[in-house]
Design a protein around this nucleic acid. Structure first.
Length: 585
RNA sequence: GGUCCGGUAGUUCAGUUGGUUAGAAUACAAGCCUGUCACGCUUGGGGUCGCGAGUUCGAGUCUCGUCCGGAUCGCCA
């Protein structure tokens, strides 16, 4: 062993011991006849002292060291003259007797500290250096902790971890697939799984009635702060269960994780329906850490001669607590924000509910005090609040109001990352109309079962059919989703019909699954958690990149290894591929 | 594919109305310094202003194009 202790463990109780430490040079402080060296590893930092009076040559050696050199130090643990209470190891230091340089290092392009001075791009390029930083190490440790706790919980409940293949077949529904050309079957292609969906259903048919896997999924779509082209799911499926069983099992998992890892106790996980969520929050993943719910003001605002309201499909109000004192300038800033092209509203009406009980709005000309009082009542605004009102086309307005609600909450500091407010959103619609392809799309996926009581609507009013589908939402982020599946060949065929698949096409794409259903498929269902997102949110962040050791950037590139990259002509030839891409540069 | 923001020293940034030799902090190097812990002090080196055109007597600054990065809409069953 190169070391007897780590850099994070020495305390007063070790004083007098001869120890050997190994680690990276964090920084050194030279004070003429003496030098202090901060030695770092992932467990902490320990100060090493060199002194002319102890060993002048050794001091000279120590002065040659640079940041991030890898060194081994032998010496005695001594009590410090001046202690540093800010450091866990701050009462002791190493009185050095031997110094071995294990490896010299170039000066790193950014500082390896709690807060680095490097920009994101640079840190990505030197990811192995960024990963030395304590915040990243904490994030990966949190990820590891959660991974283990997930396994503990599911294992205890009888779940079996079963691996499923990565080289599978491209399917038409859902996201774009990543494609892998086959060498042995020339002209044919594998696809990487968007999720192990069909395999876990087959495992149910095979009788593995409680399955889970923490596994990679791949989707070739544009990225966001909370989306990577390859990401990790906690993928689960159960047989002989109803929706209620699944909800109970997996809210139990979340409660377990928050308790074990964060020490946070969640009493209950509320459930609301999709339509209620859209009504109250304008959103299918509401952040319920705060109120400010959307109030429909249609009947209270229309037919009073104010054109904008009269012509609007929907008028929505949000009561901002304690904001009646906001200045015109502050409100204008919000109006500007709501008019940004990606929000897309044309304007915003405000109504101040003054402390003295009077009302002051930007539309006083059209509405009396009494009428404004009704708005306040409807949006649950009390004295000192400010009502923000948006009007326009239903879909756009509801979405904008939802964004506005989050924007204001952020401004007011109501989105505390240390508060955890999970909920289930249930009863999602089964289908949605896709204007582009002019056909129905499965909102969840094509294997989701419709609610029994809605099956009669399948033919005459498909958009009204609700599914046995549910999402688990945490602090305004979808962290998991699933459904009770169809386990009956006839119903599954009918679904494919509705989704516009020909019999032949359905047979070609999903014949294996439908065949399996004819050999004794149990009722089953499940869900999948977005593990990266879950880790990030529990870690108090929304950008998942820093919770993944080697993530891709916004455009799907790994800037460290420079992937994706072109391949040799020989490789292309072997795969019988020809690139039609225009050579760049 | 669209929109917005950004690209200047190793790094993070400033750079006025287009005008002299492009600055600061930090990092780095050298020297001084015996209780520092973001040590301090002195000195020094360090620039293809992303790239390419254009406007102009003159461009880091204005215009167009392009590349790269971030955010976001579409997209993500």
């Amino acid at each position: 062993m190169y070391r007897s202790h780590t850099c994070g463990e020495l305390r007063a109780s070790h004083i007098g011991q001869k120890v050997t430490l190994a680690g990276w040079v964090q920084r050194s402080r030279e004070l003429g006849g003496m030098t202090f060296l901060d030695l770092r590893d992932r467990y902490g930092i320990t100060q090493v002292a060199f002194n002319e009076e102890w060993d002048a040559n050794l001091l000279q050696e120590a002065r040659k060291l640079g940041r991030e050199w890898v060194v081994q130090i032998k010496g005695e643990v001594i009590e410090r003259h001046s202690k540093n209470t800010a450091m866990p190891t701050g009462v002791v230091e190493i009185k050095s007797s031997h110094l071995t340089v294990l490896n010299a290092a170039n000066t790193p392009p950014f500082t390896i500290e709690e807060e680095s001075d490097g920009g994101e791009e640079l840190r990505m390029k030197y990811r192995y250096l960024d990963l030395r930083r304590a915040p990243l190490q904490r994030n990966l440790a949190l990820r590891n902790r959660l991974n283990i706790e997930v396994r503990k919980y599911l294992d205890k409940d009888g779940f079996m971890d079963i691996e499923t293949p990565f080289l599978i077949k491209s399917t038409p529904e859902g996201a774009r697939d990543f494609i892998v050309p086959s060498r042995m079957q020339e002209g044919k292609f594998y696809a990487l799984p968007q999720s192990p969906q069909t395999f876990k259903q087959l495992l149910m048919v095979s009788g593995y009635d409680k399955y889970y896997q923490i596994t990679r999924c791949f989707r070739d779509e544009d990225l966001r702060a909370d989306r990577q082209p390859e990401f990790t799911q906690i993928d689960c499926e159960m047989a002989f269960v109803e929706q209620e069983d699944i909800l109970n099992t997996f809210e139990g998992l979340l409660v377990h994780l928050l308790k074990e890892v964060k020490g946070v106790h969640i009493d209950s996980v509320p459930r609301i329906t999709y339509s209620e969520s859209m009504e109250r929050f304008g959103n299918d993943k509401p952040d319920i850490r705060f109120g400010m719910e959307l109030a429909n003001l249609n009947s209270l605002t229309q037919n009073h001669g104010f054109n904008v309201f009269d012509q609007a499909e929907t008028v929505l109000g949000i009561a901002v607590p304690g904001a009646s004192s906001w200045s015109r300038k502050q409100i204008d800033k919000i109006t500007d924000w709501i008019k940004r092209p990606d929000i897309g509203m044309k304007g915003m009406v405000y109504c101040k509910v003054n402390e003295d009980g009077t009302y002051k709005s930007s539309v006083d000309k059209f509405f009396t005090q009494e009428q404004q009082a009704k708005w306040a009542k409807a949006s649950e605004a009390t004295q000192g609040d400010l009502i923000l009102i948006l009007a326009g086309e239903e879909r756009l307005t509801r979405k904008a109001a939802s964004e506005l609600r989050l924007y204001i909450a952020e401004k007011l500091g109501l989105r505390n990352p240390e508060t955890f407010a999970p909920l289930w959103v249930v009863d999602f619609p089964l289908l949605e109309w896709d204007h582009e392809s002019e056909r129905f799309h499965a909102m969840h996926h094509p294997f989701t079962s419709p609610k029994l009581e809605d099956i009669s609507l399948l033919e005459k009013n498909p958009v009204k059919v609700r599914a046995n589908a549910y999402d688990l939402v945490l602090n305004g982020n979808e962290i998991g989703g699933g459904s009770i599946r169809i386990h009956d060949r006839a119903l599954q065929s009918r679904m494919f019909d509705l989704l516009g698949f020909s019999k032949k096409e359905a047979e070609r794409q999903f014949g294996f699954l439908m065949n399996a259903f004819e050999y004794g498929a149990p009722p089953h269902g499940g869900l999948a958690f977005g593990f990266d997102r879950l880790v990030a949110i529990i870690g108090g962040a929304e950008v998942i990149r820093d919770f993944i050791a080697f993530p891709k950037n916004n455009s799907g590139r790994d800037v460290m290894i420079d992937a994706p990259a072109t391949i040799d002509e020989i490789q292309l030839h072997e795969l019988k591929l020809k690139s039609t891409a225009k050579p760049n540069e």
